[in-house]
Design a protein around this nucleic acid. Sequence first.
DNA 1: TTGTATGCGTTATCAC
DNA 2: GTGATAACGCATACAA
Lengths: 363, 363
Amino acid sequence: MAGGTTTIYDLARATGLSPSTVSRALRGIGDISPGTVARVRESAARLRYRPNVVARSLALRASDSFALMLPDIANPFFPALVKAVQLRARHHGKTVLLCNTEGVPAAEAEYLEMLASRQIQGVVVMGLAITADEIRRRVGSGMKIVALDRAAAGASAASVQADHRAGGWMATDHLLRLGHRAIAHISGPAQLSVTTERWEGYRDRMRQSRIDPGPPARGDFTESSGHQAAQELIHSGRHFTAIFCANDLMALGAISALRSAGLGVPAQISVLGFDDIELGRYAVPALTTIRQPLEDLARVAVDLLVGLLRGEEAPAPKRLAVELVVRESTAAPPRAVAGQAATLASSGIAPRGGEDVRSREDF
Amino acid sequence: MAGGTTTIYDLARATGLSPSTVSRALRGIGDISPGTVARVRESAARLRYRPNVVARSLALRASDSFALMLPDIANPFFPALVKAVQLRARHHGKTVLLCNTEGVPAAEAEYLEMLASRQIQGVVVMGLAITADEIRRRVGSGMKIVALDRAAAGASAASVQADHRAGGWMATDHLLRLGHRAIAHISGPAQLSVTTERWEGYRDRMRQSRIDPGPPARGDFTESSGHQAAQELIHSGRHFTAIFCANDLMALGAISALRSAGLGVPAQISVLGFDDIELGRYAVPALTTIRQPLEDLARVAVDLLVGLLRGEEAPAPKRLAVELVVRESTAAPPRAVAGQAATLASSGIAPRGGEDVRSREDF
DNA sequence: TTGTATGCGTTATCAC
DNA sequence: GTGATAACGCATACAA
């Protein structure tokens, strides 16, 4: 045990066996007698043997970890997902390397080089700027890719996504059923597929009720962008009694802006988010939202990746159902001033009426 | 270039040099002629050579990454810190492995084994259950440890912390200056040093004004625990006009509970947090809080660790200053009902008066 | 300034 | 069932 660390050579010496037998006994593969296995295990425990993962990776030309690339861990949706992914990864005996790209393509490319350097052959990507095909072009076809909550840009990648379009549809439907007609939408970054899909769901449901959806206000999924978008909406003079925000964080920002402008939520304006982050539950008012199945997404993504790593074929893209969670930020539109509830002029005390209305899914 | 990857042997063949010369040229160490360096670099670029970090780690018996262990990445304070740490790590050419312990000692131990297996010899720990000495006992003295925002439990570890005690003091001082006398405290997990220190700052400042601080309500730094603690405070019938919460997340939870109970913030009850998480800025009301110098903490911690890894001695524990950030969740206590503002009986409309008061630091 | 030989700890391919 | 032996790709002591 040179230098304090025990190796299989030490175990070989201790047991009177050969290194290769020790190696096999430790991993329980090949034909080894139960007795030897026991002996090896015993002295491994006694000598506090710890396998050297680095040496193993070198010999195997493969690592036991994979990467998780995401644009911004500061968005509360992602930490929860990271947790879920790590949990599932451990279930497979894998560790995950977190790569924060900040949405900048250069960082993405740099990370990919890094992964290749480390013999890492699998990556779960979320909201990336570059496509799976570009990834392959950069680091070779050995890299297994699973797109999480994002259209598989490039035919060959496996992917799981929540059904964002259905989510947009359900959100809008909920507001329409409450009686809203003037529903604004604050969307996310234009290039992201989730942005488009949530918007399409909204648009389709609006059109179904013969209402012109109008152009979305543009945000970037941060709280401050939601705040700002809502402010612009207010000052534009555009009429609306509800806002469907493309994620919870922007919804929180929007609520903040509305209240600062003297507009009650949900008394005057209803606000609906997307994701169902923990924070939304404790916000005041508690956020009505579309829940993404976080654990399921993580589980499916990791399992998919592990499958690819084992050499399995990429299955067809998977879609997971979302769910409407009705809380307190949505209510019926105000009765009296229902023509201009959202203009700055009407920022006094709201007429009661919306507060206690709770909606149910009943279709 | 066997199997698609280029090695230094390939470069040696391409340049007519030996592998060791190539190795040195690539790293720019030893005495090598400028000409050979250029030649090596050129063919490295042409053959798309990528150093195999795994092989290097094996040869060096050391990894180029370090670990960041923290209890719960779902707490918004941590993602921001993770970002800052990763940023600084890249500045040193290091990558960081994120270890989420969920506060369970078994997970901590398991992660430590994992680190040792990977030849990782440095770790930045936050809010861990086990001490630095226990870490050393487990994985040997080779592990370099930097405690971040936590007392260096065990003499030998380096550490950086914000000045939590001063923070507790400043928070309480701010409330006292606004005119509050009955100030409750919702604290964190008892075994954490930051919990104790923040509480001590609160206690000292209270005593300085000859007010009995009373026992703190106990939370665990989650929003829901803040919510619950505030509820219990309300139902206890105990009198208070302000709450100093040991972190922002609990403050947000407390505000939620207060409002649900019909208590206005800050009109009836002032609430003050700790950390200055992004969310607090956009909450309604915007959270008054004690700001921790996130980037500085991360920078100092990483630099400290890199120093230790280079064989430098652990310097004395470092303390970084915190800062009071006054926003909207604190105001003067209500005038009229100043005797029982916090009981459920008085949950009607609050007397005005607190709303527009803005405090300044003026000492 | 450059080359040779060896080791890092493991796995895999053979042979016994 | 078990044991030699040769990779894996890089770094380094030593020799030239």
